[in-house]
Structures are given as structure tokens and as C-alpha cells.
Simulated scan of single mutants.
Amino acid sequence: MATIDELRDHLFATIKALRDPANPMELDRAKTIAEVSQVVINSAKVEVEAMRVTGGISATGFLPTAAKTITSGDGSASESPIDRARAQRQIMREKA
């Protein structure tokens, strides 16, 4: 499990397995999956806070981030506002 989407898929698969009347998942296993998932979710909350503090500069790839480029109406690509802000912060750090 490397992304929030994969975690979400895994949790929904666990719910589906719990509800399977023919072969339900053992309750202890489902509880363990839920507990481990909560730890992962809590680490994602820390990542969100770090991204907020750094302006999105720091990311692990677990959570999706803004696209590197945006496309204008004429089809040309340009930097996203987030990338521009990152570049400006980098320039300010280099000047300091």
C-alpha cells in the first residue's frame, strides 16, 4: 500500500469481506487492518500538516499533490501557482 487511494481500496475490500455471508473475514483480522490503517491515516494527517507549513514543498507521494503544470485554453502548458510559489521561496532562501 503506497498511496491513500490504495489504502481506501483496501479498507473497502475489508468491509466487503466482512459482509460476505458465505465466507466472512475473521473479526480479529478486520480489527487489525482497521488499527493499522488508522496509523497510516494519522501519518497522512502529519504529512498534510507538513505540506501546509512548507507550502506543499514536502511530500512523500502517499497523498496526491497539485499537478506540475496547468494547461491554458490554447493548449499551452505553464507552471501551476504552487510551483511558482515554490520557486519564489527557493529564490528567497538562496538570497538570504
Rank of each mutant, 00 (worst) to 15 (best):
G73R: 08
E47Q: 01
L11R: 13
A87C: 05
E94T: 09
P64L: 10
I70Q: 03
G73V: 10
N23A: 14
F62L: 13
T60R: 05
Q88K: 12
E6Y: 12
N42G: 10
P24R: 12
T71L: 04
A34Y: 04
F12R: 15
K95Y: 04
A2D: 09
A96E: 11
D83L: 10
I41R: 07
A96W: 11
A87E: 13
F12E: 14
A17I: 01
A50G: 02
A17G: 11
E47S: 00
G56V: 01
S37K: 00
K31E: 05
T65L: 07
H10Q: 12
V53P: 00
A77V: 10
F12I: 11
A96H: 12
V40Q: 06
Q88F: 10
M1D: 04
Q88E: 13
R52T: 02
V36S: 15
E49H: 12
Q88Y: 08
K95E: 08
R8F: 15
I82M: 03
D20K: 02
K31F: 04
V53D: 00
A50M: 08
I82L: 05
E49M: 15
N23I: 07
I4K: 12
E35S: 06
S78D: 06
A30H: 02
K16H: 07
H10L: 15
G75L: 00
I4Q: 13
A44E: 02
D28V: 10
A67W: 03
R19C: 03
L63G: 02
T71S: 09
P21L: 10
P81F: 08
G75A: 01
T3H: 01
H10I: 14
K31M: 05
L27P: 08
I91C: 03
L7N: 11
V46W: 02
R86M: 09
S43T: 14
G56H: 08
A66C: 08
K16F: 05
R19N: 04
E47M: 01
G75E: 01
E94C: 13
S72I: 12
K31W: 04
S58A: 07
G61A: 04
A77T: 13
T65H: 07
P24Q: 08
R8A: 15
L7D: 14
H10G: 13
A67H: 05
K68D: 15
A44G: 02
N42K: 07
S78Q: 06
D83A: 14
A59N: 12
K68W: 14
A30N: 01
M25D: 06
